[in-house]
């Protein structure tokens, strides 16, 4: 199996989610190779899990006021603030048999690649099931996974720098969750690479690329014109569509 590595690019939230789905469709139809992509969000965005009630989780009016995109993912999990300057997001898309049927094991496997990248930066991190990576009890990376039409997708984010005040102004913080984790404030629950080791985002990206591609035959490629056209269509019809975003 030969993997494709897409170039790092920034997109609007709707396009980022649409690219993932367009590539998944391509893999399902055996038109696209298994794909790894790293990307950013411009403008900054909030993404919510496909099962979340948007008004329970996000201060939509504050997002609008600050020019922050809001998008509903096709994966479950929680609300994520994607800071334009402060994080790297990844997606891994492959035929399901390549990643195995055991869901928890595949979360652990891909998170292991992130942990290897952090180790490359001198940081000891650990997998915290089902979908977190923590350093000294604080979250530095989260992810979500779906499997549809025989295709595996896991996307996740690694925090490079953190504007916690802004993040928690946009999200409705779950105080019960913090209490269960023994944390007094939302800021205490998360950490970032700049706080832990001072590496640049490009250095983090380089470590992630190396760790994700280790042991994999791969090539550096672009989206096909079919994938990009389909992504533009999905960005318009689904991920940029208020009906989808506010569907629950």
């Amino acid at each position: 199996m030969i993997w494709r590595l897409l170039p790092f690019e920034h997109n609007r939230a709707a396009m980022n989610m649409a690219i993932d789905e367009a590539v998944c469709e391509g893999v399902a139809g055996q038109r696209s190779p298994p794909t790894i992509r790293f990307y950013g969000w411009t403008p900054s965005a909030v993404s919510i899990g496909c099962f979340q009630n948007i008004l329970d989780e996000v201060d939509v009016e504050e997002c609008r006021r600050q020019g922050v995109d809001v998008v509903r993912r096709r994966t479950g999990g929680g609300t994520v603030f994607h800071d334009q300057a402060g994080e790297v997001t990844y997606s891994v898309i492959a035929p399901e048999p390549e990643m195995g049927r055991d869901i928890l094991a595949s979360y652990r496997r891909v998170c292991g690649w992130v942990i290897d990248a952090l180790s490359d930066q001198g940081i000891t991190a650990e997998f915290s099931p089902i979908n977190d990576i923590i350093v000294n009890g604080r979250k530095v990376s989260g992810c979500a996974q779906t499997r549809r039409r025989g295709v595996f997708l896991q996307h996740g984010t690694v925090l490079h720098s953190l504007d916690a005040g802004r993040m928690f102004a946009l999200l409705r913080v779950d105080r019960e969750k913090l209490a269960q984790k023994g944390l007094g404030s939302a800021e205490e629950r998360v950490t970032s690479l700049s706080e832990l080791c001072g590496c640049t985002r490009d250095e983090l990206l380089s470590s992630l690329r190396q760790a994700f591609l280790r042991g994999k035959e791969h090539f550096s490629g672009d989206l096909t014109s079919y994938e990009r056209d389909r992504a533009l269509e999905l960005a318009r019809s689904r991920y940029g569509n208020r009906e989808w975003t506010f569907s629950r």
Binding site: F51, Q52, N53, I103, R147
Partner: peptide
């Protein structure tokens, strides 16, 4: 009825 949250459910359409 609406069930929501930050959980994971497979297959997703079964919600």
């Amino acid at each position: 009825a609406e069930i929501s949250g930050d959980f994971f459910l497979y297959p997703e359409d079964s919600l």
